[in-house]
Amino acid sequence: MTRESTEITVVGDDDSGLIADITALLFDHGVNITDLDQAVRDGTFRMTMNVDISEMIVGRETFREKLHELGDEFDVDVQVRFPSNCENQSIAVLVTKESHCLEALLERWHDGELGADIEVVIGNHDALEPLAAEYDVPFHDIGDENGAPNEEELLDYLAEYDVDLIALARYIRILSPEVVFRYEQRIINVHPSLLPSFPGAAAYRQAKEEGVRVAGVTAHYVTTDLDQGPIITQRAFNVPADATEAELKTRGQPLEAEALIEAVQLHLDDQLTVQQGRTEVEEPDRVDVQLGAPEELDHANPDAPRDRHEESAVSDGETTAVADD
């Protein structure tokens, strides 16, 4: 998504007349649709439109009100996000009990290096409220005594703080389609494995049990498929033969914070696009980012021998190698 276009998101129950009425409303107000995408997951319908409002014949607030009225008529939630500059973007950080990623984000923001404001920290436990208070950031606990979050409350807070980006700083809960659909490609998670390996819970334990020699972390966009969203940044580290799960976590946590901050920064700089499930960076040669392994690894890896077969011919549905001599 680019901040140069206006985005309209509709979430709720599907209705056969909804799309027709929305497109008619846009046409009547001089708004042109540039892109449209829709999906249904677990009974929840989502439609996202990017629109051009350069020839819109009403003001922005009037346009927003008209869409909200139509949403009320169909009993769906309609959100409108108009273009704005990176400096105006607001971030909500979702947390559970681990502090390292939250603290790194707060420090970067406090030092003026983030280019956006952390407006609120929301947790499903209150363990990190004192840390948020150190930086004078509001904290809201939406979890019950077992940590189960109230997502209606979550959505209310996200709307109240007019959130542009959600950073999951080791938020150990799965977001429902009700949340993900409203903030598609605006939720970034950090996961303690080199995805797609070891998704889900206890990733460091999975890595140890499988005996990997290289483990790592991944920052990615959140989708309704657990830990399968488009990958943004990754970091890797070697696994000692006798390493415990706790030792893997000790090695991985600083990299989790680093990968998450880099992914958030790229998003805020409007550097990321998603094409066929893969993120692309607008300026791939940026020297201030490290999307994967360090450049030194390229020089450390051997460059020979290589397969001498450079061409292939397809015969009877099979690929046959053709020698180059």
Rank of each mutant, 00 (worst) to 15 (best):
V281R: 05
L248A: 08
L291G: 08
I188V: 14
L255N: 01
R235V: 02
L255H: 12
A207Y: 07
A201S: 09
L255T: 07
R278M: 13
N189S: 01
E184R: 15
G211C: 12
E256S: 09
A202Q: 14
D288Y: 12
F237Q: 03
T223N: 05
Q206K: 04
E283M: 07
A246C: 01
T218C: 03
E245K: 06
T250A: 15
Q290H: 09
D270G: 11
V289W: 06
Y221F: 15
F198K: 05
G229S: 11
I188P: 01
E210P: 00
A246G: 08
E282G: 03
V217S: 02
I231E: 05
A259P: 04
I188Q: 02
N238P: 05
H267A: 06
N238L: 15
Q276L: 04
V274N: 08
Q206C: 07
Q185W: 12
E280D: 10
K208E: 04
E282K: 14
V222H: 03
R205M: 02
V281E: 02
E210I: 00
A241P: 00
L272Y: 10
L291T: 05
T279E: 02
N189E: 02
D242A: 13
T218E: 03
Q185C: 01
L194E: 08
P199Q: 08
V281T: 13
A207M: 04
T279H: 08
